[in-house]
């Protein structure tokens, strides 16, 4: 997938991260092509969130390098880097004192968009994530369900149209029906927008369905990177364990 002719959108070069001598990530070598959806899969505590935070510099590497669009993250202005990368966090992290509208409008407003354009954008995004604007625009996060909050979190990350998107279990709190629906939306959207997405998920079906490639992590190390098809046939025991959790005859659409 990652031909030598492409400059990777995101690249990890022997990336290592440690806190107080305790190694959390080590020897991470990974490249994400522009427009690719890469799923990060692994047990709880395997280092998925940490990997994401090294990309937008919420955490600083201990050694090695992470490059975004060819430039080492250390050479980016951290604020520009983060505005360039949409971030959906595990707990949504909406501002409780802002309405849904102001939450979604956060970055466009900071970027100085004219108010009509911000308003139109919020409307468009709320539709996109399946929240009727008239009904939800003026609510506060307290007045939303967990799944609705997550949708607002996704809309907020997309608001200023960043070319790169980091998503940490963005659909974790959704019921299976809404989840399937938003996954369909995601695929439709992605075929149009071609963003570079790193998606953390615990749901192997979701990874198989949404991702071009699946990166499997364990205890702070990358076990392997697979296409959905090779993942299903992988000899790697951890991959096989995941595949074994799928029901018999479950053939994911994206493998077709």
């Amino acid at each position: 997938m990652t031909g030598e002719t492409f400059q990777p959108a995101i690249e990890f070069l022997q990336a290592r991260y440690a806190v107080d001598g305790h190694i959390i990530l080590s020897g991470l070598e990974l490249a994400v092509a522009p427009g690719e959806v890469l799923a990060l899969v692994g047990r709880s505590g395997s280092g998925k969130t940490t990997t994401l935070k090294l990309i937008n510099r919420l955490l600083d590497l201990t050694s090695g390098d992470v490059r975004v669009e060819g430039r080492s993250v250390g050479n980016w202005d951290p604020i520009r880097l983060r505005r360039h990368i949409g971030y959906v966090i595990q707990e949504a992290g909406l501002f409780p004192h802002y309405t849904v509208e102001r939450n979604v409008a956060l970055i466009p407003r900071l970027e100085g968009w004219p108010p009509e354009r911000v308003r139109a954008r919020v409307e468009e995004l709320l539709h996109l994530v399946g929240l009727e604007p008239a009904k939800f625009r003026d609510r506060h996060p307290r007045e939303l369900s967990g799944g609705q909050r997550q949708r607002v979190g996704v809309a907020r990350a997309l608001a200023a149209d960043p070319p790169i998107l980091l998503m940490d279990e963005p659909f974790g709190a959704l019921d299976p029906l809404s989840r399937a629906e938003i996954q369909r939306e995601f695929l439709a959207l992605q075929s149009r927008l071609k963003k570079t997405v790193v998606l953390v998920t615990h749901d192997i079906r979701e990874a198989l369905r949404l991702a071009n490639r699946i990166a499997l992590m364990e205890a702070g190390k990358l076990v392997g990177v697979y296409s959905p098809l090779t993942f299903l046939k992988a000899r790697e025991p951890l991959a096989a364990e995941y595949v074994a959790t799928l029901g018999p005859g479950e053939t994911p659409e994206s493998a077709a």
Binding site: I79, R80, R83, A92, G93, L110, R156
Partner: peptide, 27 residues
């Protein structure tokens, strides 16, 4: 202030001052 709120603010590229004025002080 809920750490996840602060982290989202930081992750989306708010400056320390914007986080203080728009998030931390109001909350």
């Amino acid at each position: 202030v809920d750490p996840s709120v602060r982290e989202a603010a930081r992750g989306m590229g708010l400056t320390a001052r914007q986080i203080l004025v728009q998030v931390e002080l109001p909350l």
